[in-house]
Design a protein around this nucleic acid. Structure first.
Length: 539
DNA sequence: GTACTGGGCCAC
DNA sequence: AAACGTGGCCCAGTAC
């Protein structure tokens, strides 16, 4: 399903006549215009650096990794290492950044399943061999330009993930505590419930005829509710919402506040915030589609309730930007559906759909688009699909095709060539349809993740070029990422320039992926003192 | 005690 | 009104 890539970089020619090498045959391990330095060994102990330059490799023993990287990065090499998450944190702690890298683990995962690859890289322990195999896989693939861009963007993402953690999102423990205290009551000393939760617990039990209930236990709740004559099958929110009973309101309130306390309460604050910074762990490539996952800190689920505790330093601001309706715009661009691209010409994609008469109002347009990308067949969303398919046949047939491929056991690929996993097809029709919904969504979600990686990388590069001071304390820098949203912490006087950089990088990302396509990727930007103010000012 | 699953709910 | 994608985290409950 991947065709021409107008925006991809030029095809990388294989150099059959590459020179002999000093230490190892590195034919295949070259890219245009960059020296590569392969680091092997243990970043905390003995390190060997192998310089790969125009087919020649020379190895040297590195005594002081930090000094070595600081010095060599001035020549703008591409650092090749087993994984950025292993090598970068100690360097960043020592105040050393690198411009670019090749992350063998992340690239290896992409190349292992990409349908563009014709020669699968063999597994090697030695990073020089591993790198050579991966370069060959890229250069001999059906579309080297796309895999070149994807693997570079993925690796840039790995650098950014480490830098986000090292820099941290500015966080006011005082403001966080104020929010918690306002909603829950003062922090309890022992393990008992905070005052507000204890009161809600009592209200729930009173409303359930004085039953003893553990409100954290669905089983306990279900039993008590049925004993009180409430006809429910489960205690899920959507089922409770339709029921008129005095126990429901305090229970909903209890759940919301209880989750706030357990997921992002005082314990979270103690664990994840230090020195005025929230430092979560991001996992680039952690999701099959290529989205980032997180492990510890819950960065990708930071609830709205506490975002106001992300407060810029005195004299600094947060530039908060999100890509407006990213996924539908991605679908429009990758399908080349001129009508859908035209619908997105303005700032509000869904309003464009309404103008085309493809949906009655904005809410319907949104439900219909999400349904098309998620595979809704019934309900309100399903009913709106025919009109959408009539107005935008190319876009809709792209996702339908992806769904059919999945149902029939064929892999699908994102725009840049990340492919869905193989799956045994000894499945029931229901399982086949479920896999079809996955592959349907995979192509759009995965390509949106690729756009976001290019956007992130562009922002980082442009910031580094525009603000050469000491990172992070003296210059604007990325501090947060959330799928289609970024936050830059910046001295107030640079906020406007940063906003321009963020917009320029969004344009760059669109061109990198889709070349001359007229598809646009507008970003909404807010410059704020605290993260909580961003949604309000953007909406 | 640890490992795992499902319910519930947060984010996109 | 509810079935439609990707995750993480906490809790309760169960198996070992």
């Amino acid at each position: 399903m991947v065709g021409e890539c107008p925006g991809g970089r030029g095809r990388i020619s294989r150099d059959a006549g590459a020179s002999d090498t000093l230490a190892v045959d590195v034919r295949g391990a070259r890219e245009d215009g960059a020296v590569q330095i392969v680091l092997s060994g243990d970043p905390a102990a003995g390190v060997t650096a192998t310089r790969v330059d125009d087919g020649l490799a020379s190895a040297e023993r590195v005594e002081d990794l930090v000094e070595f990287v600081r010095r060599e990065d001035l020549a703008r090499p591409r650092w090749v290492w087993s994984s950025a998450s292993e090598w970068l944190p100690p360097l960043l702690r020592a105040g050393v950044r690198v411009e670019r890298c090749h992350d063998l683990a992340l690239v290896g995962a992409i190349l292992a399943s990409s349908q563009l690859v014709t020669t699968r890289p063999r597994a090697f322990e030695d990073p020089v061999e591993r790198y050579r195999e991966q370069r060959i896989a890229i250069e001999t693939s059906r579309d080297p330009g796309r895999l070149e861009l994807l693997t570079a963007a993925e690796s840039a993402g790995a650098i950014i993930a480490a830098e986000l953690r090292a820099a941290g999102l500015p966080w006011s423990a005082t403001e966080h505590d104020r929010i918690l205290t306002e909603l829950l009551g003062p922090r309890p000393v022992g393990r008992e419930r905070p005052a507000v939760l204890a009161a809600l617990h009592e209200q729930i039990e009173a409303a359930l005829d004085g039953a003893i209930v553990n409100p954290d236990s669905p089983q306990s709740l279900l039993a008590a509710m049925r004993a009180a004559g409430i006809p429910v099958r489960s205690t899920q929110r959507w089922e409770l919402r339709g029921i008129d009973h005095p126990a429901i309101a305090p229970l909903s309130e209890y759940r919301s506040l209880s989750r706030l306390m357990t997921a992002n309460g005082w314990a979270w604050l103690d664990t994840w915030v230090s020195d005025g910074r929230f430092r979560p762990e991001y996992v680039p490539g952690g999701v099959v589609t290529g989205r980032w996952a997180s492990s510890g800190g819950g960065a990708l689920q930071l609830p709205m309730q506490i975002r106001a505790a992300a407060v810029a330093d005195p004299g600094w601001r947060l530039v908060v930007a999100d890509a407006a309706q990213l996924e539908p715009r991605i679908l429009a661009a990758m399908s080349g559906d001129a009508a859908m691209i035209e619908a997105g010409a303005g700032a509000d994609f869904y309003a464009g759909l309404v103008e085309h008469g493809a949906a009655a109002d904005r809410a319907q347009a949104k439900v219909a688009m999400l349904g098309a990308m998620y595979g809704a067949t019934t309900g309100a969303s399903g009913k709106l699909m025919p009109a959408l398919a009539r107005a935008y046949p190319r876009a809709i047939s792209l996702v339908e095709r992806a769904a059919r491929d999945g149902e029939q056991g064929r892999p699908v690929s994102t725009w840049l060539g990340r492919s869905s996993p193989e799956r045994a097809t000894d499945w029931t029709p229901t399982q086949a349809r479920a896999w079809g919904r996955f592959t349907r969504n995979f192509v759009v979600q995965g390509t949106a993740a690729e756009w976001a990686l290019c956007w992130l990388g562009g922002i980082r590069g442009r910031l580094a070029a525009a603000f050469p001071g000491s990172w992070p304390e003296a210059v604007p820098h990325l501090v947060f990422f959330l799928h289609d949203e970024i936050v830059v912490h910046t001295p107030q006087e640079h906020a406007e320039e940063v906003a321009g950089i963020v917009e320029d990088a969004a344009r760059d990302a669109g061109r990198l992926l889709f070349g001359a396509s007229p598809a646009t990727f507008p970003v909404s930007i807010a410059t704020v003192r605290d993260y909580g103010a961003a949604k309000a000012s953007v909406a």
